[in-house]
Design a protein around this nucleic acid. Structure first.
Lengths: 209, 209
DNA sequence: TGTACATCAGTGAACGCGCGTTCACTGATGTAC
DNA sequence: TGTACATCAGTGAACGCGCGTTCACTGATGTAC
């Protein structure tokens, strides 16, 4: 049996879709296993609990994403002295997303929705888990920004980075709906890559303000 | 009995806090009524259902906010010909928030969290309700933007407005935590008004990019 | 190669629990005559 | 002013339902000798 249609993978696939669509609490294991066409008890067999399933869904995305972002950052760190401006840095942040989307359709908006939901979780166990396990990539990214803009204070960079993340997550999480509206109201068909291309100048201008 | 400590108000106060903290599904009526110190059955007596309670929580914020934003827009529309630039428009969007915060502490971040959660709701009944009932204020705002920047196409304005909203909602919803981090890491104490003051130039630069 | 046992993936049915909602009821206040 | 009834705000206890989880079990595959 190939890795992608094992019971475990089928559960992960169904779960990430449903969590992104409806949220964690609003998605029952019965809904997940029905969509995945597997037995209800197999979730607890493979993942132990619903909580662990949620973490594993994040892990699959984040290990992919942070691995690719790590490579982007390696390349940037190697070329110190080169033009290290905002657009280049933002593109490094965003390129791994496009690469994920290439492997699996809709995965950018699923990923961004999940991030938004993790962020909204105030019990915070998920947010803590994510920042503890993957926060270091964001730290590396921040350091590059500080190197690129030595005139900006560290706390300015901190805040502007969060403005940027908010804009990105919010826009990309809702991009399916927004693109539909744009197509209907302005007769403009866009791919998600087009949305990303358009948001970068906006964010870059803000970062440099 | 004054309006603010009636059973109905006590339920609304407790509910908006808990919904913002934990989300709608994660907050039970038992938790709400325990915090409000009222009887469990009184929620269904006053609001009919949990769903209606959620809508009423939104209504209280949105009727306040959209009323005040309406007045800001009246003032701007009256002074056509004046400087109608981005900063002025963004400040009009943001001033009603500050006025809400003045009446009730923490209300900006509660309101923004609720908006974020409504936005994440994909069943969408709440999002539909909000846009149907209060969408026209956003339309007026968009029209002013189009007047201010006739060179930008309508769909560019549409997208940039959403980048801006994403940034604002995301940042202000999490501003308590972000301000704590800023205070700890950069030794910088900020009020929520300071956060708003700082984000406006960022967003204005993006809008004009 | 054959036998005995262990491990693994998966299953059907049941468990107790917390949930939103309902219901019959109480007591205070308002209204009609 | 007094009486009868209606309306309103609130309550305690129970309802059925869907939830995550558990448990005893099956059958297939792997391992030891």
């Amino acid at each position: 049996m190939s890795k992608n249609d094992s019971t475990k993978s089928k559960i992960l696939d169904a779960a990430e879709q449903l969590f992104a669509e409806r949220g964690f609490a609003e998605t029952s294991l019965r809904t997940i296993t029905a969509r995945a066409k597997v037995n209800l008890a197999s979730v607890n067999y493979h993942f132990g609990s619903k909580k662990s399933l949620i973490q594993d869904v994040f892990d699959r995305f984040l290990s992919d994403y942070s691995h690719e972002l790590g490579q982007e950052l390696n390349a940037l760190e190697a070329n110190v002295g080169n033009q290290l401006d905002t657009e280049v840095l933002l593109k490094a942040l965003v390129r791994p997303l496009i690469s994920i989307e290439a492997k699996r359709e809709k995965s950018i908006s699923i990923f961004m929705r999940l991030l938004g939901r993790a962020y909204a979780e105030t019990q915070g166990h998920l947010r803590r888990y994510v920042t503890e396990k993957y926060g270091y990539v964001l730290v590396r990214f921040t350091l590059l920004f500080q190197k690129a803009y030595p005139t900006l204070s560290n706390d300015q960079i901190f805040w502007r980075l969060h403005y940027t993340l908010g804009s990105l997550i919010f826009t990309l999480a809702g991009s399916d709906a927004l693109r539909e509206i744009a197509a209907a109201d302005f007769d403009r068909q866009m791919q998600i890559e087009d949305v990303i291309d358009e948001i970068i100048p906006f964010l870059a201008a803000g970062m440099k303000a």
